[in-house]
Design a protein around this nucleic acid. Structure first.
Lengths: 123, 123
DNA sequence: ACGCATATGTTACACTTGTAACACATGTCA
DNA sequence: TGACATGTGTTACAAGTGTAACATATGCGT
């Protein structure tokens, strides 16, 4: 499973906050900020489904999108990748240092920390 | 100035350790590890020169490569980008948490910390 | 002077990502 | 019922990246 790009991460963030959403709803959230046309949003969404970053299903005749993995799981992968390649830190990571970030709640940090450094690895 | 890709970072790392080096010498360092042919290494080096990640000059009739920016400066940019987009941490970053990484020396960490959080911003 | 090793210039091709248009179906409203 | 809005499928194209071959120059040894 490949890592999300920067753009894809923007979409994931809105979906983690309130999934599932339709393409139109997602566009309303990220389009203005990213300066994207609706087409661009849709293309990116399609690719994210291809990459299994998102699941798509039809509800009331409309296609709605939903993240496949939790925020904690996805971000733990992104962080492991980053620290591994850039800083060559392969062992446990000091997740506590990032708790300032408002991207994850306390609970999500717990989950992320468990995924990164915990003992119950299940992937 | 664009960020180095993962592959480019590998090359930068060997050059930070011992610059300047010729393409052949760089290939000897990174080729086996990355599974690259000499051609691949040379192409990547060319692109890094285009992107101003490396400087090239001729010494004894041979082209040698050298990083334009210091390890601390480059990695501070990479880290700022990462923390900004992924964790949305725009302010000071807890660099002390990474001191376990052997990628930078104590002195380089000082420089990096100054670039990220210090007051004498000069870029 | 010739051939080989090495250096360098040039070109190629596939995949990912950014960014978007075109075209078609269908439901709704006048 | 015909036009319009909205959803969806398909296609496009450029830049960046991974990965490499081909061709040419040139010095060095015999």
């Amino acid at each position: 499973m490949s890592q999300p790009s920067k753009s894809e991460l923007s979409i994931l963030k809105v979906l983690w906050a309130e999934a599932p959403l339709s393409a139109r709803e997602i566009q309303e959230k990220v389009g203005p900020e990213l300066g994207w046309s609706f087409s661009t949003t849709r293309t990116t969404l399609s690719r994210m489904v291809e990459k299994s970053l998102l699941e798509i299903c039809t509800k009331h005749g409309v296609r709605i999108y939903e993240p496949v993995d939790s925020k904690a799981r996805t971000l733990s992968g992104v962080m492991r990748e980053f620290f591994g390649t850039v800083l060559e830190m392969k062992g446990p990571l000091p997740t506590a240092a990032f708790h300032d970030s408002k991207v994850l709640t306390e609970e999500e940090w717990l989950e992320l920390d468990d995924l990164l450094n915990g003992s119950n690895r299940d992937d």
